[in-house]
């Protein structure tokens, strides 16, 4: 019992405190690739610290939905992070929800975030909400099909079972269908975390923006919660990718070897983050109406993955 509680606390700590690091690493690497110095890897922690200590301004037009949104978003994202295996192949709460619950918890957070955007009454918020819901909707079939491929090869939607199954055959990622599913999920990752070429996380007053438009009116501690949730969501999706497709180093249970697993887990995440940054720096932002084409590619990839796994 105590072991389970400790595992739960450890996982909460990992999801909470590792996530800003990945964001910081991405930003620094991106700056370096663009020949800038960048703000340092730890900047997101400082940002959160600073924002948490600031005052905030709530728009006069907003209702309780606006204030509830940061909490709902934070809590749903954190819970999604507790359902997936990070360091140990046994996620502490995976019995209470599998991969479907992860996807739908993130959707619940997004539902409230989009309402928060509309609640301000400014057209920026509505614009962001509309685009966020559109893009997440058309990313959904590719995501679900790739998830199905993974779940079907393990015979379960429970992510701990999936991770343990793939741990048994670590080199399986070389199989073509696994690569295809990975590629599909990689595109979905970019779309869901709002990175170039789908969305630009670094802009504020551009008509092309999505996520930033939705949260334009948030400030102070609420903004800190939302930024942190965005970092956690990125961690959740990236963990899904690295631990399902590259389960090396996942420990069984919690022991001293877990520390080594933690290091390996961090390294895997950094590699994936570097890959995302490479895509970001070598591509230009797409027009909004080109995004469906990109996501259609993801859908075709995951459909091909599924067919090649089971049809032949």
């Amino acid at each position: 019992m105590t072991e389970r509680a400790l595992a739960l606390l450890a996982q909460i700590a990992i999801v909470l405190f590792l996530s800003p690091l990945i964001t910081g690493f991405s930003r620094t690497l991106k700056a370096r690739l663009q020949m800038r110095r960048g703000a340092g890897i730890l900047q997101p922690y400082w940002d959160i610290h600073k924002l948490l200590r600031k005052g905030m301004v709530i728009p006069e037009t907003a209702s309780w939905i606006f204030s509830a949104t940061p909490y709902v978003l934070f809590v749903t994202t954190l819970l999604a992070g507790l359902l997936i295996p990070t360091v140990s192949a046994q996620a502490p709460l995976s019995l209470y929800g599998g991969v479907l619950a992860v996807v739908y918890l993130l959707a619940l957070g997004r539902f409230f975030l989009a309402l928060g955007g509309l609640d301000t009454g400014s057209s920026f918020g509505g614009l962001g909400s509309s685009r966020e819901m559109t893009i997440s909707a058309i990313a959904e079939p590719a995501l679900m099909l790739a998830v199905f491929t993974v779940a079907l090869s393990a015979g379960s939607t429970n992510l701990s079972v999936v991770a343990q199954a793939s741990l048994g055959q670590s080199w399986r990622f070389l199989a073509p269908q696994q690569m295809l599913a990975f590629a599909a999920l990689f595109i979905v990752l970019i779309a869901e975390t709002g990175r170039i070429p789908v969305d630009n996380p670094a802009t504020h007053l551009e008509l092309t923006m999505i996520h930033e438009a939705m949260i334009l009116e948030y400030s102070g501690p609420y903004l800190a919660l939302i930024e942190w949730s965005a970092a956690m969501k990125q961690l959740v999706l990236m963990t899904l990718l690295v631990n399902v497709f590259f389960p090396f180093g996942l420990s069984i249970g919690w022991s001293m070897g877990t520390l080594l697993s933690l290091v390996l887990f961090g390294l895997k995440l950094l590699l994936l983050a570097a890959a995302v940054v490479l895509v970001e720096t070598t591509n230009a932002k797409m027009r909004l109406f080109r995004v469906p084409e990109l996501l259609a590619v993801a859908f075709v990839l995951s459909a091909t993955a599924l067919i090649s796994t089971f049809l032949f």
């Binding site: 037009t61 907003a62 209702s63 939905i65 996807v103 959707a107 997004r110 539902f111 989009a114 309402l115 509309l118 609640d119 301000t120 009454g121 509505g126 909400s129 509309s130 819901m133 559109t134 997440s136 909707a137 058309i138 959904e140 079939p141 590719a142 995501l143 679900m144 099909l145 199905f148 079907l152 859908f299 459909a303 599924l306």
Partner: peptide
């Protein structure tokens, strides 16, 4: 699985639709 993927699309679109229905009717 194709039906499953389209169910996922349906559910996500339904969420979008109810963000609209609730947001436009009740908020701001």
């Amino acid at each position: 699985p194709v039906a499953g993927a389209l169910l996922a699309l349906t559910a996500a679109l339904a969420a979008a639709c109810f963000v609209k229905a609730f947001g436009i009717t009740f908020l701001a």
